[in-house]
Amino acid sequence: SHLLLVEPDKIYAMADPTAPENDVKVLTTLCDLVDRELVVIINWAKHVPGFSALSLGDQMGLLQSAWMEVLILGLVFRSLPYEEGLVYADNLVLEREQCRVVGLLDLYCTILQLITKYRKLQLDKEEFVTLKAMALANSDSMSIENVEAIQNLQDLLHEALQDYETNQHLADPHRSGKLLMTLPLLRQTANKAIQSFRRVVTEGKVPMHKLFLEMLEAKA
């Protein structure tokens, strides 16, 4: 219930109305949205129980490893009710063809696989917020100082998920396992997304904001 309360408000894409309609405009709008979403994710992380008690170094380590997983899980959850397309924001829904044109078709297909999985499971909001916090706590950062504190955080979240499933999804005793088994695909998808956006940086056609660049570099 705490995670539900601290769930951030929606953010919207802010396309430049004067820019010509082309692939660069779509990518520019997308990268600007991701940059603003990163600020939202960093502020959200502070409200995950136990996170703010970690050292600043460990907070940075977790976020630098997990930010793209958190971002993608949000994207996937928003996209669940839609037939097709990735709901980056309510006013920025990218369908297959648009993803192909901007060079993100491969990423689109992987994210779609994740969406299909969660759609079959009928992932609900409580599970979504818990998995998102788990992705943060389970980020396997190489630079963790206090391993025990991170383990406690993971245990706390695992317990919350187990409690929830025991009370709300009695009919399927394997449900929490099914949910946890989606996390490898989430990581794989996030890694692919990082590669895709690094390619966008290398191509140099799209202006990138500083925080987005900093987080892309931190994943190296």
């Binding site: 600020v39 940075m60 500083k210 900093e214």
Partner: peptide, 15 residues
């Protein structure tokens, strides 16, 4: 931490 100064600043920002 120098290299990741925006993240560092946002985490320290209490607002």
């Amino acid at each position: 931490k120098e290299k990741h100064k925006i993240l560092h600043r946002l985490l320290q920002d209490s607002t």
